[in-house]
Simulated scan of single mutants.
Amino acid sequence: MDNERKCSDTGCSQGSCEGCSQSAQQVSLLEDLNAYSHVKKVIGIVSGKGGVGKSLVTSSLAVELQKKGYKVGILDADITGPSIPKMFGITGKAKGSEQGLHPEASVSGIKIMSINLLLETDDTPVIWRGPVIAGVVKQFWTDVVWGELDYLLIDMPPGTGDVPLTVFQSIPVDGIVIVTSPQDLVNLIVKKAYNMAEKMNIPVLGLIENYSYLMCPDCGKKINIFGKGKTEEEAEKEGLEMLGNVPVMPHIAELADEGRFDEAENPYIAKAVDKIDGMLR
């Protein structure tokens, strides 16, 4: 009866309320993890807009955490624009068993599940409506045999639509890292992601500014090719921690294009790695 009254107060029916953030605060919609999996911590990598390098940050965090001896997995929730398998040179397809769907692993042992591991070819377009895409993301949690993981990193699609909402409602996310770029829209980008996380009661671990600058290979001077970043200013305003300023790194882009991201080194996210590392200490 209370739920019906709350729904009527907000102008939506009880039936339609299941998919909105107002309902998420009232009724738990968390899905059970696959029975043959144990994941200690789940971290979402998010942004209020696309093109800021969430996949690069997600993959970098996974590689650095793996180097520390942790067992790491990546759930590629960007169903319509998946890139994680290509970055790690994974060309095989996910295989099923009685236990569930088994992820592929990178050279260093990072477990990866992406829609590309289920499609006939890497360039097969995913032309699905939002609810279908959201359902697949849930299945990546309920049906995939992750085994024993210390950290599962979720590479989220941009924005605050169906998939981010589904992730926050269905998966017990322990914290998110917000990725931005050094542009005037950064305050809007950060606020969108931050406000959504706050409404869903998800802790924000901090901010990473990607594409902060380009280091001149000749003189070593920092060149702000996208303008002087305002992320630190916005972080201070929102009371959030700055976890890194990542420059444009052509050599890492080359490793990603060649499917050799296991070899990548990203010292600029050390603070973020330490922050996540501390969650299990």
Rank of each mutant, 00 (worst) to 15 (best):
2 D>W: 14
4 E>Y: 10
9 D>W: 12
22 Q>W: 15
24 A>Q: 07
24 A>I: 13
24 A>H: 07
28 S>G: 08
29 L>G: 06
30 L>W: 09
34 N>I: 07
36 Y>M: 11
36 Y>I: 15
37 S>G: 03
43 I>Y: 04
45 I>G: 04
49 K>P: 02
49 K>G: 02
59 S>G: 05
61 L>M: 03
63 V>Y: 06
64 E>M: 10
64 E>N: 13
65 L>D: 05
68 K>R: 14
70 Y>E: 11
73 G>H: 06
75 L>Q: 00
77 A>M: 01
80 T>K: 10
82 P>C: 02
87 M>R: 05
89 G>L: 01
96 G>V: 15
96 G>T: 15
99 Q>D: 14
100 G>A: 10
104 E>Q: 06
111 K>L: 00
115 I>P: 02
115 I>Q: 01
116 N>D: 11
122 D>H: 09
123 D>W: 05
126 V>S: 00
127 I>F: 01
128 W>E: 04
128 W>I: 01
129 R>G: 05
132 V>M: 13
134 A>Y: 06
134 A>N: 05
135 G>K: 01
137 V>M: 14
139 Q>S: 07
142 T>S: 05
145 V>S: 00
146 W>D: 07
146 W>K: 10
147 G>M: 03
148 E>L: 08
152 L>S: 00
152 L>N: 00
156 M>K: 03
156 M>Y: 05
157 P>C: 01
162 D>I: 05
168 F>C: 08
168 F>P: 04
169 Q>N: 07
169 Q>L: 08
170 S>P: 10
172 P>K: 01
173 V>A: 08
175 G>Y: 14
179 V>I: 07
181 S>R: 00
182 P>Y: 03
185 L>D: 13
185 L>W: 11
187 N>R: 15
187 N>T: 12
187 N>F: 12
191 K>I: 03
192 K>H: 02
193 A>K: 11
195 N>Q: 08
198 E>H: 10
200 M>E: 07
203 P>R: 13
205 L>G: 04
210 N>Y: 03
211 Y>F: 11
214 L>C: 07
216 C>L: 11
217 P>C: 08
218 D>R: 12
218 D>A: 11
221 K>V: 10
221 K>E: 14
232 E>L: 08
237 K>T: 08
239 G>T: 09
241 E>F: 03
241 E>W: 02
244 G>H: 00
245 N>R: 11
246 V>P: 07
248 V>S: 11
249 M>Q: 10
250 P>H: 03
252 I>T: 01
254 E>M: 14
255 L>E: 07
256 A>I: 08
257 D>M: 09
257 D>R: 05
260 R>L: 08
262 D>G: 02
263 E>N: 04
266 N>P: 07
267 P>S: 13
270 A>S: 15
270 A>K: 15
271 K>E: 06
277 D>P: 14
